[in-house]
């Protein structure tokens, strides 16, 4: 198998990398580009810790081949803050203790942002169903839902 060159945009910056044909986008982001924010919790698309956006669509980067990212715009947790200015979701997760160990947090933030980009005023049930693909074993989700709703309210009033 010979390596493939891929040209993409990651968090707004043009990036080229090479990868193996069987390499996942997650492995390329973490191993080739050093973007270790996205985590591998399962490798089978069940836990959502590897969530990123590809052309605005929320995907499990462990289920997508890196080579498929050719020409795509990829968004990861590293691109949510603007410099040192946190996104309202990030600040809200800190304010509401929406994380304990924090390993699911990057995926949940990417997923929650994708929700609020589409639906700025979700019900609790909509948040819970949208995040049903993101496993968290520490919090029992209660404070995560509160954090997302608080950020949503703040973003609506901004």
């Amino acid at each position: 198998m010979s390596a493939i060159t891929v040209s993409t945009t990651v968090n707004g910056d043009a990036v080229d990398f090479i990868c193996q044909p069987d390499e996942s986008l997650l492995d390329a982001l973490r191993g080739r580009l050093g973007l270790t924010g996205a985590k591998e919790g399962c490798g089978t698309g069940d836990c959502g810790a590897c969530s990123v956006t590809v052309n605005g669509r929320l995907v499990c980067s462990c289920l997508m081949l890196a080579a498929e990212a050719e020409g795509a715009e990829i968004g990861t947790v590293e691109g949510i803050a603007k410099g040192n200015a946190l996104h309202p979701l990030q600040q809200s997760f800190l304010d509401h203790a929406g994380l304990q160990c924090g390993v699911c947090t990057p995926g949940i933030l990417v997923a929650a942002k994708a929700l609020l980009d589409r639906n700025p005023d979700p019900t609790d049930e909509e948040v819970r169903y949208w995040l049903a693909g993101n496993l968290c074993r520490c919090t029992g989700y209660d404070k995560i839902i509160r954090a997302v709703q608080s950020a949503a309210a703040q973003m609506r009033s901004a």
Partner: peptide, 13 residues
């Protein structure tokens, strides 16, 4: 906290 919401925190892998 900030390291953990920005993806900077370094875990085992």
């Amino acid at each position: 906290g900030i390291d953990k919401v920005t993806g900077r925190a370094l875990y085992g892998a």
